[in-house]
Design a protein around this nucleic acid. Sequence first.
DNA 1: CAGAATTGGTTGAAGCTTCAACAGGTGCTC
DNA 2: GAGCACCTGTTGAAGCTTCAACCAATTCTG
Lengths: 153, 153
Amino acid sequence: MTEPRWLDADQQRDWRAFVDGSVRLTELLDRDLKSKHGLSVSEYEILVRLSEAPERRLRMAELAEHASQSRSRLSHTCSRLESKGLVFRGGCPNDKRGVYAHLTDEGFDALDRAARDHVETVRDFFIDIIDPSDLAAIGRAFTAVNKRISEAG
Amino acid sequence: MTEPRWLDADQQRDWRAFVDGSVRLTELLDRDLKSKHGLSVSEYEILVRLSEAPERRLRMAELAEHASQSRSRLSHTCSRLESKGLVFRGGCPNDKRGVYAHLTDEGFDALDRAARDHVETVRDFFIDIIDPSDLAAIGRAFTAVNKRISEAG
DNA sequence: CAGAATTGGTTGAAGCTTCAACAGGTGCTC
DNA sequence: GAGCACCTGTTGAAGCTTCAACCAATTCTG
């Protein structure tokens, strides 16, 4: 068995900073959103994507794709959001298998309130403490990661 | 209520690339590690930290800190690792409340096997597709994030 | 030194995610 | 147009995480 190409010291340091940082950051954002607005990050993501979609509705499969969630997970989470009155699901005329998830007005308001706090926290713990050129580098890097993962799909 | 400082278009784009990318990447790594070695990323992290500790053992609280996990979660996960024979827990002489988690030889071997595959996947989907200076930027940025979160503690 | 406050770690229940199986629709092919 | 492969979305169970409550040991305080 050949020796793998281990990371060098710098790569190791940077990779670990990322792993730790992203875990801690998402946890912090999740806790923040939950305590102030009763929403998890993944629920929040769903509301965001719906709010941006034409007519504030999206097919389940599309929504799953946009929110980086499995269909099963989305299905469960939508049930919860539906029971909170933030989302409702209705059939699709063209394709009788299809289901549209719609953002309710109440859902839109909840999202608006949450987003105002959320953006401040994101700034506080990420955007505003990072050099703008480093942020651009992050953008480039993770765009490449997304592309790579999609290709491997 | 004053209008919050929304992100500008570039910030938004970069932030979202990161959110999506990191979710997808961790999911991919998790699936990879699980299918090839039956370990989740967080179990893997625990084994890594133990393997690097003097005498391959660490107090539970320290281990939780290093692995960015809650104590409760660590406790449950260690129970699972213990029943797989990769870790065992023993008391602490000085502080009778304390518990040391030890890496077993079997645990060390399992980690060694897993790490060889893991590093290739990390390279494939992250390190090797990113410009080295962008990786350095990521290191700087997330080091700052970690610092900020610790300070806010 | 007694009592209170803090720290270390575990536990069980509730909540969320994953996984595999499924029901119903669509569309392709022969 | 019957059969077959594929796609959509849901479901329930199993697995993992979070949360709050808890016990035990240590340390602080008067």
